[in-house]
Design a protein around this nucleic acid. Structure first.
Lengths: 151, 151
DNA sequence: AACGGATCATTTGCACACGAACGATCGGCA
DNA sequence: TGCCGATCGTTCGTGTGCAAATGATCCGTT
């Protein structure tokens, strides 16, 4: 008991603050766990969560501008730039000239990208299932709804 | 309507998969939002979420080994190494020799570190409050409980 | 037509996050 | 005692994530 005791002054300084009960800490852990499940399940297709998100959105919309894609997938311009570059390098996505705006190019899925996405979506469903596996059906819906409401 | 229409083949490929409804996507967004709130609120003290977590745990325990600290704060050895290095550089934490194990050193908070942590905990409570602000009291408890259960 | 603020994409610098490989040390078991 | 698998901390490479700065282009207003 003595060996694991919290030092007396720590209680005063921290005022009963419990790190592992804070939403921020729990969100970080939950996100890490999901990322680990995602990367393992998606290993054969070699897609990260952000690469997958970007690819799916490009297919869903058909023609997107890079920064708009970033807004739709919660990535800032600096981040989406790297994600798109890797997708283009792998020829899953192509850049086309935008006749309406010379600052931008339009992102279009390639046949290989569309094909890969089709297979990836199947894994993605399994990933959501695995991530939520500690929870019952009602709890899953509740968690999803609360995370949505969180903004 | 035509301009925002989903391409006909997208529906077939994606099979109704909705990115923004997946836990993984929502967890990533929620974690990003929290990190933004944290960094802004903690800007005056210049602590990141991981630096804060490590500092609090070191004070709570009094003497910790680096990898153990990483386990307690959900960071792998490579990550906790950089976090601790920055805390040591800022003289918030000290390394002491471990008489029991020559592979390790023991981490101990400095007076400056303890002082800073005391002020940081106050901000941290405000950060948790701000992060959960879109939710009602019951919803906050529910979300925290579900995230805990998630592992 | 010209100005000026906004947006686009890129780059740099810093901070997580993790797999993999490494050398040093520990600990248990033959 | 000696060996061998496990653990400790470090480093490297890759991929997010964001602030800030940059140059190009756009567009509304004058």
């Amino acid at each position: 008991m003595a060996q694991s005791a919290v030092p007396p002054e720590a209680e005063n300084v921290l005022g009963g603050y419990a790190l592992e009960e804070q939403v921020g800490f729990l969100l970080r852990r939950a996100h890490q766990r999901h990322a680990a499940i995602f990367l393992e399940t998606m290993a054969a297709l070699d897609l990260t969560p952000t690469q997958f998100a970007a690819l799916v959105k490009i297919i869903e919309i058909g023609r997107v501008t890079q920064n708009l894609l970033g807004r739709l997938t919660a990535m800032d311009p600096a981040t989406i730039q790297g994600v798109v570059r890797r997708l283009v390098d792998r020829q899953l996505v192509e850049r086309a000239l935008d006749p309406m705006d010379r600052r931008t190019s339009v992102l279009i899925p390639t046949a290989a990208g569309t094909d890969l996405a089709g297979r990836a979506v199947i894994s993605a469903r399994a990933i959501t299932e695995a991530t939520l596996s500690p929870l019952g059906a009602d709890e899953r819906d509740t968690l999803t709804a609360l995370l949505r409401k969180l903004g």
